[in-house]
Design a protein around this nucleic acid. Sequence first.
DNA 1: TCTCTCACG
DNA 2: ACGTACGTGAGAGAC
Length: 342
Amino acid sequence: MLFDKLQLDPKAKKTKTGQYKTGEDVLSALAHKSDIVQDILDFRQYQKLKSTYVDALPTLINPNTGLIHTSYNQAVAATGRLSSTNPNLQNIPIRTEKGREVRKAFIPREEENIILSADYSQIELRIMAELSQDEHMLEAFALGQDIHRATAAKVYGVDIDQVTADQRRNAKAVNFGIIYGQSAFGLSQSLGIPRKEAADIIEQYFNQYKGIKQYMSKVVETAKENGYVETILKRRRYLRDINSANMTVRGFAERNAINAPIQGSAADMIKVAMINIQKDIEDQGLKGKMIMQVHDELVFDIPEKELDAFKNIILHRMPTAIPMRVPIVVEIGIGKNWLEAH
DNA sequence: TCTCTCACG
DNA sequence: ACGTACGTGAGAGAC
């Protein structure tokens, strides 16, 4: 209907099975051409929230406990992260207003309890700073600076308090993109700017953060020599395609080589923290429980009376799980439901 | 069972 | 000329 009848895009792309692509990015770009497009996007959002969460979660309540019990898989994700199934509690909505209503439904098991959420602040960028030992990024974190603002100041050559909202947004996109081994094309797409401009930003980035550029080259090089990369705790990811003659295939492996030590070391860190926290909870005979992990966040269901005890444990164990030169910052929130705690 | 889409970090 | 950011899991619909 959108492409054959309404002809909204003469250059519409197709999937490898020959269907028109209609992902969110595609439809958003067409929304101004016909009112029906925004209706489709809205419908998709509500359909997703209803089918995946609102309808499904209540059916997964265990009649014996009255609770939803997820399963955490320790040997699925190639980077060493956990994954969560039946249900997946690591993808509960938060980004949209309607989605946040779902998150509000996650409440403590007892009337006198609260939800406590503790998350690592900018953990992957801090780990990249540690792995690369980049002088300037380490300094920004040591000074407690807003890392995206600090990056913008470096990339655009302005004072840190002269950074505009636009510059900060671009710098934030670069910081994330770098962790994934992003290209100028990828950055231009995510920011909606010309490729040349994106290339300039990336060049400036590596000029300012020379240690990161060096680290990226080194990790790809060692991957080519060894056939694998390692996290801080020596978890390996083997990369069979790292020396492939096919550029596209090799490109994927090279991005994996860059990303896996960062994402995987963050996973190492939170796993050690979880072990240490659980031991402290048991040693101190506390009634509160650690109930969920969402990659850089731990969620607890605790009696309000135990709040100080839990804060002490968490603020001790999470930042010190793996000793590092870069400061590790943990943010804690509490509330009557998971959304409030965030 | 596979593909497409979309929810999260 | 081509493809193009990492890691997951689940529902709908087609086959």
